[in-house]
């Protein structure tokens, strides 16, 4: 049945488009790509502020810190949230959690690839890095690359702490971001915590994803990589890391 459906659909398409549809590779040159590559200044400091502002606008909680202070910041955020357990990908830079787990106040739940959704459902928080962030839209892109883990990790717990390195991981716009991303990798683009507009068309509190999204902007590293290079952009098939965290 599948193959007959296939032949029928293709035959109908060819009948419908007629001569115009000669299947040869008419390169889509006729596409007028006169739209902008970026809408705002791409000065790194300006992009950092814009990202910060747009994240806040969509109800993410944003913190700024330095590489040196990152472990203390992470420990403080977990404590303030009252978290006893925090899920992390196996390749999270160990320093990030060093202070939080030091007093055994928080227990790290490391994803060895076998954590189930049911197990994660009882974990308080999740801590990850990201592939990159888009300032104009306030979007964080996860691509299951370094320091990010599998998709379910950042989905099931109710509290997500995401670390972004500035300026290395911040780009201005979608046209800047897409060439840096590898379509083969499963991606989750996150713009604020879970939300719904289904009740009277008003964006309100979240439903299924993490209802609290905390973003830690790590500044002052001047685009140099972290100690483990853990937040390095995943190797793109069609491009290279943006301003290279490396």
């Amino acid at each position: 049945m599948t193959s007959t459906g296939r032949e029928r659909v293709l035959a109908r398409i060819r009948a419908a488009i007629g001569e115009a549809g000669s299947p040869g590779e008419e390169a889509p040159d006729g596409i007028p790509r006169t739209y902008l590559s970026a809408h705002r200044s791409e000065d790194p400091a300006a992009l950092l502020d814009l990202l910060h502002e747009n994240l806040v606008d969509y109800r993410a909680v944003v913190h700024r810190t330095t590489e040196h202070e990152l472990p203390a910041t992470v420990a403080r955020l977990l404590a303030e949230h009252g978290s006893r357990t925090v899920a992390v990908p196996a390749d999270l830079p160990p320093g990030w959690l060093a202070l939080a787990v030091a007093g055994a106040a928080v227990q790290a739940v490391v994803d060895d690839g076998a954590l189930t959704a049911a197990q994660l459902d009882s974990v308080d928080s999740v801590l990850t890095g990201c592939a990159l962030a888009v300032a104009e839209t306030g979007t964080i892109v996860l691509d299951a690359g370094a320091a990010q883990g599998r998709r379910l990790l950042t989905l099931v717990p109710d509290h997500h702490i995401c670390v972004i390195r500035a300026p290395g991981q911040i780009v201005a716009s979608l046209p800047r971001a897409l060439p840096l991303l590898d379509p083969v990798r499963p991606q989750t683009w996150i713009s604020g915590p879970s939300a719904t507009s289904d009740i009277e068309l008003d964006r309100v509190e979240g439903v299924h994803g993490p209802r609290t999204l905390e973003v830690v902007l790590v500044t002052g590293s001047r685009g140099r990589p972290g100690p483990s290079g853990a937040t390095r952009l995943s190797p793109g098939r069609r491009g290279r890391g943006p301003h290279g965290p490396e």
Partner: peptide
């Protein structure tokens, strides 16, 4: 929804080992 970007966009290509 009149948003700069919707909260979640998922992109996937076939299947990925151990993820999804």
């Amino acid at each position: 929804t009149a948003e700069r970007m919707n909260p979640y966009t998922s992109l996937w290509t076939g299947t990925s080992d151990g993820d999804g």
